[in-house]
Simulated assay, not measured.
Amino acid sequence: MTPLDALRAAGSPDRAAEAAARHETDREYLGTPLPAIDALVAEWRAELSVEERVALAGSLWHSNVHEARIAAARLLLQARLRPDEAAWRLVQDWIGQLDNWAIADAVGKAAEKRVMADLARLEEVAQWLPSENPWARRSALIATNPMAKKNNTKPEEQDAREEVLDWMVDLLADRDWHVQKAIATWLRDLAKHDPERVRAFLAEHGEVMRGFTRKDVAKAV
């Protein structure tokens, strides 16, 4: 049984119809629940080399099946993936193709692992910010979210955190709700570890923040 056939076998027509209505993206839906996807991904990860996993991820993505694209991203979630240059290139290729929240967030999480493995990749993530695709802009914040959650940051991690906060200033006027939600989530997470920095951010930029974003963040501090 091929990986795509295995995903299909674990699916449900009723769930597929619900997913198609929820995501409103023109592609095939299998109705495979996330726990079943993760179980299959765990099997593939155990059986395949890094090179084979990257190749499978590319193939699943190319199928343009909703659950296969999520599985493709989740195949690359491993933090210690060595070598990971091919996986990183694959994630970058996917960023411009994002078109619904479920796939976008799965790819953003895959990107997160690769960025945290090499902070020099922030330079490439910054190139997603001017994209006309709001999911690419949101992914830039998802990919860097762990920086908001760290205690006792190293100097290079602190510099990276400040770089993302600088990005955020430029995104405050973004009209996309999903981007604004990512901003609020990032700052709320930072507030749990460095509330003073979030208070300073609100004091400096609160007046230009979207009202619902500012209120959401303010509750955390």
Results as ranks from 00 to 15, higher is better:
P83A: 08
R121C: 03
E123R: 14
H23E: 07
E163C: 05
D93F: 03
R188F: 11
D84Y: 09
E18N: 10
R161A: 07
Q92C: 08
L119S: 05
L75E: 03
A36C: 09
P33K: 02
M209Y: 01
R89Y: 13
D84T: 04
M168P: 01
V115L: 06
L4R: 15
A203L: 13
A143R: 01
M147E: 09
D118A: 13
E156G: 05
A68H: 01
S139A: 14
E43A: 10
D118Y: 13
P35L: 01
E67S: 10
V217F: 09
E123D: 12
E52H: 03
V217D: 02
K181S: 14
W167G: 08
D189P: 05
A16P: 04
W186T: 12
R69T: 04
G11D: 00
E24I: 08
R121E: 06
A16M: 05
A218K: 12
Q180T: 14
K215H: 14
R27G: 01
K150G: 06
A68R: 00
L56K: 01
S59D: 11
R114V: 07
A20K: 15
P35K: 03
A126D: 07
E157A: 12
H62Y: 10
H23R: 14
A143Y: 00
M209V: 10
E207W: 12
N145H: 10
W61N: 00
A117G: 07
P3S: 12
S59I: 08
W135M: 06
V91P: 06
A182I: 12
A55Q: 06
N133I: 11
H205C: 09
A36R: 14
G31Y: 00
P35A: 05
E156Y: 11
S63A: 13
A117Y: 07
L190Y: 00
R138G: 05
A148P: 00
W128C: 09
G211C: 05
A220I: 08
A110E: 01
M209D: 02
W101D: 02
V107F: 00
E28R: 15
I37W: 02
H23C: 06
K215A: 13
T32N: 04
A6R: 15
R210K: 12
L129F: 08
L75P: 01
A182G: 09
W135H: 11
V91I: 08
N133A: 07
K215W: 02
A71E: 03
R53Q: 14
E157L: 05
A72H: 01
R214S: 07
R188P: 04
R89M: 05
E157W: 09
H23K: 15
R74H: 10
R82T: 11
W88R: 03
V164N: 00
D170I: 11
I142E: 06
H23Q: 15
D176F: 06
L129C: 03
K109E: 06
R82S: 10
E24Q: 15
E112G: 08
K150M: 15
R214I: 05
M168T: 10
M168Q: 11
W101P: 00
